[in-house]
Design a protein around this nucleic acid. Structure first.
Lengths: 234, 234
DNA sequence: CGCGAGCTTGACGTTGTTCAACTAGAGTGG
DNA sequence: CCACTCTAGTTGAACAACGTCAAGCTCGCG
């Protein structure tokens, strides 16, 4: 229909964060400066949106889709810092971590993303504190969820961390107690910082205990309360 | 000489981040708004500067001293996210993580801190994008070092993590290859997310292998290269 | 039909925690 | 001045958590 080409019909700019925020504090000339040169792209599952180590020149608005933020230590060792679903601003951390991207952003499901040029954005931000503040607050959300994930890493055993992750995915990414489990076992392992065999055995334990269920590719969270208890008690 | 009372002589405002930055972008009236009502306090080792869960109304400039950022899961389980030495801006994350502090800040050594009221700062920031950007960049530094620590947590064994921590403390906190080891073994354990017995045995291994040495309270980093290798190889 | 990627399971060894016992120094009170 | 206690540091042994390895399974795709 549409989304398999890189140059396709316009996104719905009304859903864009910048535009909705614009009602509050972005005047037409600033909006033109930022959005005028915007590039709209489609990414397929597992395509790399932004590469760790590269110098980034743009931030993006994720209209639709799911992406993961990963840090690669060596070709064999990936770590997933967080997973995010649109609509949401992504990559803005690189406005502040200036030199080089410290992590990659990779599509977990097909994504529609609108890219804005860093310099255009920064030019407007220097004179628009309110907009900058709004962006910073949204970045903080991402950091905060990463930090909670890290803390779970520091304090919990794998059995608790995976419970954490399932709850996180429900509440922040898939937004439904039943969701197509588009993250592979290996990706969950990279998120929980453990082996994929371990993920499998923990999931099958949850399954036996009736906390979750599987239907084909779908996972069904059956007992949120108990999962939260498990994540609390380690 | 002076610093054991809470109301003592003025700090050296020339060393303050805001003031040095002021040369660039802070005019006198804004500086007055922010610094006019500043409160100057002295904290002793192990005193709590900012409490997790409290609603914070101020950010601080750490003139002198060392502080740790800790997250407490329950009374028995602390995790140290990062350690920071002055002069440096601290607590500014709470400008953005608005609701409640997600971590505590506690003095590791005696500290001199100048507190600024959140609302005063925010009022100025809304109209001064450059200052906000400068503050955000400094916050990012702290996040970045936390993130690297977390990644070490995710990928490395304790043997590598503690090497990481020793190097981090040298390069970012004590700024000397020989330093008074004011962090206890238990605190290192909370930083590395392991048991304190484990810290002890790893440190005594490093010692046996000639990578580090002890002289009373002092620790001496003897072989930085090997420590870095160890931290890289897990 | 055959091949490869992702998934699953169990056996086994390593890493790290917990527990218990011991040491040394610092503070307190008679 | 000595006995007491409290805290930080240290060591080793038993045990649990977790990773690695090897084998087999299923499903989609060429």
């Amino acid at each position: 229909m549409d989304s398999n080409e890189n140059t396709h019909s316009l996104f719905d700019c009304n859903s864009c964060f910048l535009n909705r925020l614009g009602i509050l504090s972005l005047n037409e000339s600033d909006r033109q400066k930022i959005c005028g040169k915007a590039t709209q792209l489609h990414f397929k599952k597992s395509e790399s949106i932004l590469k760790q180590g590269a110098t980034s020149t743009s931030i993006g608005f994720l209209h639709k889709g799911i992406v993961k933020f990963t840090y690669q230590k060596d070709p064999k060792k990936n770590y997933i810092m967080t997973v995010v679903s649109g609509p949401k601003l992504i990559g803005q951390a690189n406005l502040f971590f200036k030199e080089r991207n410290i992590f990659s952003i990779i599509a977990v499901e097909d994504c529609d993303i609108c890219f804005l040029d860093n310099r255009d954005v920064m030019g407007v931000l220097a004179n628009n504190g309110k907009l900058l503040l709004a962006i910073v607050e949204r970045s903080s959300d991402m950091f905060q969820s990463s930090i909670f994930n890290f803390i779970s890493l520091a304090h919990n055993h794998v059995y608790g961390r995976i419970a954490d992750i399932l709850v996180f995915l429900w509440e922040n990414v898939y937004l439904n107690s039943e969701y197509d489990f588009t993250l592979s076992r290996k990706e969950i392992a990279e998120f929980a910082a453990c082996s994929h065999e371990n993920v499998i055995s923990v999931l099958s334990n949850y399954n036996k205990e009736g906390l979750i269920g599987f239907e084909g590719k779908k996972i069904i969270i059956k007992d949120l309360k108990k999962l939260k208890e498990i994540s609390k008690n380690g």
